[in-house]
């Protein structure tokens, strides 16, 4: 029996090799063989395309990233279930990663216990992970084209909301540079500069920050000047009113080691935290210095940041909203928080 099968297979191969003779005939049978070869080639083409598609997906990091994010969110959900009380959490992705997200039933109807993360362009291959459900906590089904979400646990409910556009990026991508300086309070110095036409406000702001830094830490070498001066850190201010949108614009010195970038990032984060609930500002811009920005002329090797507040409001009121966040950012920069 086995011998017979081998014979048939061998005959099949020989017949396959003989097939071109039939094709040239182009009779009914020859046409049929020709079509058969075409179908085979098409099938082979589909299989090869599928194969290389798999190879492409495997060799690019896209699927791996989606899987990582899915597991991370699922484990975050596990911890949210276990955390007593209320909490909210911003979950942001890298700016280059735009995914859609679905919280839905795993295999049981009506029980939301799984996360699906998919590429917006290709929804066919979502990454999936399951988390443990607590019967005392209710979760709503949620689906969004953008996976940057805020997870909120409140009153035995877990809800999801999309993070507004103006907030995305504020809490991600902090420059990874070590600026911790254990003895900074003794030998660091700061210089506050006004770059435009409001020296009185600069003086008020710098004195306020100086006081905020001195409340708990003995910082003796703070200078406030209207010109650039020799210091570890130079912070320039401008407050203007009458713009179309209320905004905070932070420009940082384009130094090689990214320290200015880190300080500017921290300032934006702290100003955002302090003013978000009152909706004081609509925009929080962060850019590096260019030829036309006020930091032109600053020493490139120095840590330098320029902050511009743009709001139709009494500058003195605005001053109070700026002092503490900036002082907190400086303290965090030196590893005090």
């Amino acid at each position: 029996m086995i011998h017979f099968q081998q014979e048939i297979l061998l005959d099949a191969i020989i017949n396959y090799l003989n097939a071109p003779d039939d094709v040239t005939v182009m009779g009914k049978r020859g046409q049929s063989n020709f079509m058969f070869i075409i179908y085979q080639l098409l099938a082979l083409g589909i299989v090869i395309v599928a194969f290389f598609g798999f190879v492409y997906k495997t060799t690019t990091d896209d699927y791996a990233f989606r899987e990582l994010y899915t597991k991370d969110i699922a484990l975050t959900m596990e911890l949210m279930h276990g955390a007593p009380g209320e909490l909210s959490l911003h979950y942001e992705f890298m700016p280059t990663k735009t995914y859609g997200i679905v919280f839905k039933e795993g295999s049981s109807e009506g029980i939301i216990d799984s996360i699906w993360l998919y590429d917006i362009k290709n929804k066919n291959t979502p990454a999936f992970f399951q988390f443990g459900r607590d019967p005392f906590i209710s979760i709503e089904r949620y689906e969004a084209e953008r996976a940057d979400i805020e997870l909120i646990k409140q009153n035995n409910n877990i809800n999801f909301t999309e993070i507004p556009d103006e907030i995305i990026g504020i809490f991600s991508d902090m420059p990874r540079v070590n600026t911790v300086f254990p003895t900074w309070k003794y030998d660091r110095s700061f210089c506050f500069v006004t770059s435009l036409d409001n020296p009185e406000m600069t003086l008020l702001l710098s004195r306020g920050i100086e006081s905020a830094l001195r409340i708990e830490r003995r910082v003796d070498r703070i200078k406030a000047d209207i010109h650039q001066c020799d210091a570890d850190m130079t912070i320039a201010f401008n407050i203007k009113s009458g713009g179309e949108q209320s905004s905070v614009k932070i420009v940082y010195n384009d130094d090689i080691d990214q320290k200015s970038h880190k300080l500017a990032w921290l300032m934006r984060k702290h100003i955002f935290d302090a003013t978000y609930e009152e909706k004081t500002f609509n925009q929080f811009l962060l850019t590096k210095s260019a030829e036309d920005t006020p930091l032109k002329g600053f020493d490139d090797s120095n840590v330098g940041v320029f902050i511009e507040f743009n709001k139709e409001e009494e500058p003195l009121l605005l001053r109070n909203q700026a002092i503490l966040p900036i002082a907190d950012a400086i303290r965090e920069y030196y590893g005090e928080i």
């Binding site: 014979e7 048939i8 061998l10 005959d11 099949a12 020989i14 049978r29």
Partner: peptide, 17 residues
């Protein structure tokens, strides 16, 4: 061993191959 198949045997052999 039969080296050349008849026309009638070609169709099932094609499926097998």
């Amino acid at each position: 061993m039969q080296l050349f198949l008849s026309r009638k045997a070609a169709s099932p052999v094609a499926v097998l191959q």
